[in-house]
Design a protein around this nucleic acid. Sequence first.
DNA 1: CAACTTAGTTCTTATTTGGAACTTAAGGCA
DNA 2: TGCCTTAAGTTCCAAATAAGAACTAAGTTG
Lengths: 112, 112
Amino acid sequence: MKWTDLDDNWCPVARTLSLVGDRWTLLILRDCFLGMSRFDQFVTSTGATRHLISDRLKRLVEADILEKKAYSERPKRYEYVLTEKGHEFAPALLAFRDWGKKHLPVRRATQA
Amino acid sequence: MKWTDLDDNWCPVARTLSLVGDRWTLLILRDCFLGMSRFDQFVTSTGATRHLISDRLKRLVEADILEKKAYSERPKRYEYVLTEKGHEFAPALLAFRDWGKKHLPVRRATQA
DNA sequence: CAACTTAGTTCTTATTTGGAACTTAAGGCA
DNA sequence: TGCCTTAAGTTCCAAATAAGAACTAAGTTG
């Protein structure tokens, strides 16, 4: 199945997944909510390849979830910031966070 | 990056994504909340391949989000039902649903 | 006995991803 | 001037993952 095959699905959950139902996309959005906005920050923070970040940012901009803004003219440099539509995605990430905190504790004790 | 590389991430969102950060996994969970429980229902409803469904159900059972129960002894037949941990994932799906309803309306009018 | 059902598995081919190097357009500095 | 650095990507090939269809197992039904 292609990325966009869920676009027209009757179910709003499926339509949402057609845009953001992907590990990397969601990690990028998390980073945006944590205040990150630049390409290399996303690469470092998520651990995804530059190729993947490039692709996912493109999709997010196209979907009007992020906006690509020049923050420097010479040299041309861009950053990615959440739109209103993007900001409204917060509850979903908060739900993920809460579930993770409750059900997937980190197991540090087993190290050392 | 492997499926489980986010397991031990400091961020609870990332840890959650390591389990369910995948289009098909989330669609299966949606179906569970809609009352589905059988292999072929998931295949039909999501449109994913049998292989994918098989793999994702395995992961969900391993993660204690779904439970595999025999509903018939002869012939042996199984169904998949949400555990308590799985039920508590509801807020995340509701957030996806709400966001999708608001920001991704279906565009039926353009057909016909 | 032949056909059907459910829950998968197997096979081969296509698509995606990973990882590293390369590009472009400056800016710094010796 | 020449060389190194930064930021934001792109390109390349190899490796991993998914698609699609057919096949299997263990019964049940007509």
